[in-house]
Structures are given as C-alpha cells and as structure tokens.
C-alpha cells in the first residue's frame, strides 16, 4: 500500500534530492508539498518547491507556502553559504510555471489530514513551524496523522549549527517543542543517524551522471553544497545524507535502528535548539519519539541512488 505523505520542505539542495527521491518512489504518494523558510528565505523556498514538483511532471501536486519565520523567535539572518542565496546553489533557476495554492501551509496540512483521517504521514525536513502551527489550528490532527517523520535534531551527538543544536530545530525550537510534545507518533531522523549515512563520491557521482531531469538539476546545484561540506567537514566531496534519509525511513523503516525517549527542547540561551532525550522521563511524561540512532547505511544509500538514477 502506498503511503500518502505531505512533504514539508525548505529547498535547499538536499531537499531537492529528498523530494525528487520521494516523487520517484512508488511506495509513497506525495499528496502535497508545503514550504517553509530555512535553507533560504520563505519566498525563495516556496518558488523552489514549486519548481521541484514541476521538474519531473508532477505539477498537479499542490504546493502551499508556509511560514517565513519562526513562531516566537525574531526573523533570522539565514546563512546562504550552504545552499546559496536562491537555495539552489546560486544557479538562478528559471521561474516555475504554476502557482502556489491559495492557502497557508498550516491550513493545507489541517485540511488534507482531516480529509484523509489516519492516512497522512507528515515528512518535514525543515524548521517545524508549519507543523506546529497546524497542530495549534486543529489539535485533532494529532490523532488523525499516521506518523510524523522529521529530519532534524541531535539527541546523543553534537549539533551542526551550534555545538549542541541541529539547524532545522534551531531555526524554530518552540515549534519543535510543540511537535515533540504532542500526542502523536514522531520519528526523528536527526544527526544521530544522518552523520552515519555518508553519500560517498562514487555514489554521488553516479547520481550526477544519470540522464534525467533531477540529475540534470542536481549537477548544477550541488557544487556549492559539496564545497561547503568539504570545507567544514573535510570529507572530500562526500556529503551527509540528511533530508533523503527521512524519505528512506518513510519507505523502509526496517533499515533504521531506533531508541525511544520523549524529546525535550531547550528554547533559550546558548543551548537553544538542543533536543534532549529524556530517557527516564525525569522531566516530562509525554509520548516518546522514535529516535533514529543507526541505519543500514549502505542499503539506505543504494536505495537513494537507485531511485535517483532510474
């Protein structure tokens, strides 16, 4: 049975890989795409999301634009060194043909979930702002969503944007607290696992050598991203597979190893954005999150490469 997903995204180079991967996977049916600020500014990621659904003939999938900034924190100066000013590696892509849906992303999520009770999996791979707003607009979605599979957080490992925090969560820690504390099934595909899933040069080059619209786009937009990884992590052209790993989990959770603990956010100060695993329920008694801590990395990578080179 195909899994219906709403892909919430801030494209973004790895978002591009992840969304294309999802759209090319028969196990998943992308029923909507919602955009959020993050890897680039809100208006930019919205246009990119639209471009990405159109890229391989999926222009019928609605794209709803969401939040331009965090719910509580003031608007951020977003770094552009990873994904470029345009979220597409500074390649100045052509404008999309279609139009955004005439509804805010949060309301789109609410409406879609209410219309498909028990059937929707939310796959947010950016800041969790839209998901949190949807929860507050209609708390009932907590019991009607099948699962939330999110890319973000760092429970037992260091962060990437600060020593403690992962970037998606850091960009809206209050939204993250709302999502992690709600009574629904949440799986966190964070740095604990994505730093173990390293897209090596051979595999990456194989994707880029393919002859399809996704690969043709990726060839243009990845140099900036790859360059950043090389400078910061010195992993020689390889990259950590962040967003596509969340999609891989949606396709085959069996490839991942999870631990369970409620996640508590630090929302202030220099530890802001830290996702704390409260394993013994000392601080909170709400529902545990499935925290991905390991994966059959080779199999995950092969799955991604297989789909993107088709």
């Amino acid at each position: 049975m195909t899994k219906k997903i709403i892909f919430d995204t801030d494209p973004g180079v790895d978002d591009t890989m992840a969304l294309t991967f999802a759209l090319r996977s028969p196990e998943l049916e992308v029923v909507g795409v919602t955009s959020v600020f993050g890897n680039a500014a809100g208006p930019v990621t919205a246009q990119n999301a639209l471009r990405l659904v159109e890229l391989e003939g999926n222009g019928h999938i609605p794209v709803a634009r969401g939040a331009d900034q965090a719910i509580v924190l003031p608007a951020l100066e977003l770094g552009t060194e990873v994904h470029g000013e345009d979220g597409m590696g500074n390649t100045d892509p052509a404008p999309p043909k279609g139009k955004l849906a005439d509804v805010h992303a949060a309301q789109f999520i609410v409406d879609t979930v209410l219309a498909n009770p028990g059937e929707i999996t939310l796959v947010p791979v950016g800041p969790l702002t839209n998901i949190a707003l949807a929860l507050r607009l209609e708390p009932k979605i907590a019991e009607l969503v099948d699962e939330v599979i999110l890319m973000g957080g760092a429970a037992y490992v260091p962060g990437n944007i600060t020593p403690l925090a992962e970037a998606n969560i850091y960009h809206d820690p209050h939204a993250a607290q709302m999502v992690f504390s709600a009574d629904w099934k949440v799986t966190m595909v964070g740095l604990d696992v994505t730093h173990q899933i390293v897209m090596d040069n051979a595999r990456f080059d194989k994707i880029l050598a393919a002859d399809n619209p996704a690969a043709n786009l990726l060839r243009k937009i990845v140099p900036c991203y790859r360059n950043f990884f090389d400078q910061v992590y010195g992993i020689g052209g390889a990259v950590y597979t962040h967003d596509p790993s969340a999609v891989a989990y949606a396709i085959d959770p069996g490839l991942f190893e999870v631990r369970q603990a409620p996640i508590v956010l630090e929302t202030e100060g220099r530890c802001m954005g830290k996702t704390i695993a409260d394993e013994e329920h000392r601080w909170v008694d709400y529902r545990s999150t499935n925290i991905c801590v390991g994966a059959q990395a080779e199999a995950v990578l092969d799955l991604i490469v297989g789909r993107l080179t088709k």
């Binding site: 939040a67 331009d68 900034q69 719910i71 509580v72 805010h104 949060a106 702002t129 707003l133 607009l137």
Partner: peptide, 8 residues
Amino acid sequence: ALALSIAP
C-alpha cells in the same frame, strides 16, 4: 501570536 505567525 498564532495569527501573526501565519499572517505577519
């Protein structure tokens, strides 16, 4: 706050 967040 929610209204301003959705509609700044």
